[in-house]
């Protein structure tokens, strides 16, 4: 059970039960759809960006607890940041889960709770789906729906 507590930490369960910023945003300046072909889950991320800063971010969809909590916490952590800072955060988060970088200089804060997902390789995609979708909304990736298979 202790391994599981490491994965399903209270903050993750809380965001799963009560996702933050979960609504459609018709006035969004950009949005993107993400899809996890493994489980059929989908997420849509909306952004309102002004002067290069994420003023508002919301989402619809998601799926399992890891995916929903990750999406919800992502929206909280990127709000108010510049697009460059968001990209840095994406990279830091991705590296934490895929173990590419040993040392992190990006301040991940609360997002560190997802570190436990590393031990569950098939679930890494659940945690990164929202981030890939966000990045696609920011136009950093090719147009069209993203899929976690690309990661």
């Amino acid at each position: 059970m202790s391994d599981l507590k490491q994965l399903y930490q209270e903050i993750i369960l809380d965001h799963n039960r009560n996702p933050r910023n979960c609504y459609a945003m018709p006035e969004a300046s950009c949005s993107a759809d993400g899809h996890n072909p493994l489980c059929g889950d989908t997420v849509k991320v909306y952004l309102r960006i002004e002067d290069g800063i994420v003023r508002e971010i919301s989402f619809e969809g998601a799926g399992c607890a890891i995916c929903t909590a990750s999406t919800s916490m992502m929206t909280e952590s990127v709000k108010g940041k510049t697009v460059e800072e968001v990209i840095e955060l994406f990279e830091g988060f991705h590296h934490m889960l895929t173990g590419i970088a040993e040392e992190q200089d990006v301040e991940l804060g609360k997002l560190r709770v997802f570190e436990g997902v590393r031990e569950y390789p098939v679930r890494v995609k659940c945690a990164t789906l929202a981030w890939h979708t966000l990045r696609s909304a920011l136009g950093e990736e090719a147009d069209g729906p993203v899929s976690t298979e690309d990661s």
């Binding site: 489980c39 059929g40 799926g63 399992c64 890891i66 995916c67 659940c126």
Partner: peptide
């Protein structure tokens, strides 16, 4: 509770099931 979470937790208990579509 999403089936994926059920599948991961069951796996920790040694029980192999399928979760998905």
């Amino acid at each position: 509770i999403h089936p994926h979470d059920v599948g991961t937790i069951l796996d920790q208990e040694g029980v192999a099931v399928r979760a998905g579509h």
